[in-house]
Simulated scan of single mutants.
Amino acid sequence: MTAIEQYLIDTWRASQQGAPMPPPPGRDDVAVLRAGRTYLQFRAVLDGGEARRPWWAALRRLNHAHGAR
């Protein structure tokens, strides 16, 4: 059974029982990824490192790659 099929069954069941509707699949995926990134940055600071920002590092790599031509 796919996640969509399970979601439809849970939605139907919630409507029959008067319960709150379940969240759609994938709704909180980005929030989970952000929380994981924030936790890794937090752990890096506790370990004595710096809280790096992966987007800035990726942009820096791209700029150095283009500047090397």
Score class of each variant (00 low, 15 high):
residue 29 D to C: 02
residue 59 L to H: 05
residue 17 Q to C: 08
residue 49 G to V: 02
residue 34 R to Q: 13
residue 21 M to W: 04
residue 57 A to C: 06
residue 23 P to F: 01
residue 10 D to G: 02
residue 29 D to A: 07
residue 3 A to D: 15
residue 38 T to Y: 01
residue 66 H to D: 05
residue 60 R to E: 15
residue 49 G to Y: 03
residue 39 Y to Q: 09
residue 62 L to F: 01
residue 21 M to N: 14
residue 46 L to R: 13
residue 36 G to I: 11
residue 48 G to R: 02
residue 46 L to I: 06
residue 45 V to P: 01
residue 53 R to W: 08
residue 30 V to P: 07
residue 33 L to S: 11
residue 27 R to L: 14
residue 21 M to A: 15
residue 59 L to N: 11
residue 4 I to P: 13
residue 55 W to H: 09
residue 29 D to H: 05
residue 39 Y to C: 09
residue 24 P to N: 04
residue 53 R to Q: 10
residue 49 G to L: 04
residue 4 I to F: 05
residue 41 Q to M: 13
residue 60 R to L: 09
residue 3 A to V: 00
residue 68 A to Y: 03
residue 46 L to V: 05
residue 9 I to S: 12
residue 64 H to I: 00
residue 31 A to L: 05
residue 24 P to S: 07
residue 63 N to C: 07
residue 67 G to R: 06
residue 68 A to T: 14
residue 36 G to L: 08
residue 24 P to F: 00
residue 68 A to F: 02
residue 41 Q to N: 09
residue 26 G to N: 13
residue 58 A to K: 08
residue 24 P to I: 03
residue 60 R to I: 04
residue 1 M to K: 04
residue 58 A to M: 11
residue 25 P to E: 11
residue 8 L to C: 13
residue 67 G to P: 04
residue 63 N to R: 12
residue 10 D to A: 06
residue 14 A to N: 11
residue 21 M to Q: 15
residue 59 L to G: 14
residue 61 R to F: 00
residue 49 G to K: 06
residue 24 P to Y: 00
residue 41 Q to T: 03
residue 29 D to V: 07
residue 16 Q to C: 12
residue 3 A to Q: 11
residue 7 Y to K: 01
residue 41 Q to V: 03
residue 12 W to D: 14
residue 50 E to Y: 01
residue 22 P to M: 01
residue 8 L to T: 13
residue 45 V to H: 00
residue 35 A to L: 08
residue 52 R to E: 14
residue 31 A to V: 09
residue 61 R to E: 09
residue 15 S to N: 10
residue 8 L to K: 12
residue 49 G to F: 02
residue 12 W to N: 08
residue 52 R to L: 08
residue 58 A to R: 12
residue 36 G to C: 08
residue 7 Y to L: 02
residue 62 L to R: 07
residue 28 D to C: 03
residue 24 P to W: 00
residue 27 R to P: 04
residue 58 A to Y: 01
residue 60 R to Q: 08
residue 23 P to C: 06
residue 7 Y to Q: 06
residue 64 H to L: 07
residue 9 I to A: 14
residue 7 Y to S: 05
residue 13 R to W: 02
residue 1 M to Y: 03
residue 17 Q to A: 15
residue 10 D to H: 01
residue 8 L to V: 10
residue 28 D to W: 10
residue 7 Y to G: 10
residue 4 I to M: 12
residue 30 V to D: 15
residue 55 W to E: 14
residue 19 A to C: 06
residue 69 R to L: 06
residue 44 A to L: 01
residue 17 Q to L: 14
residue 7 Y to F: 10
residue 13 R to A: 15
residue 35 A to Q: 15
residue 61 R to V: 00
residue 41 Q to G: 11
residue 47 D to G: 11
residue 2 T to P: 07
residue 66 H to G: 05
residue 1 M to H: 07
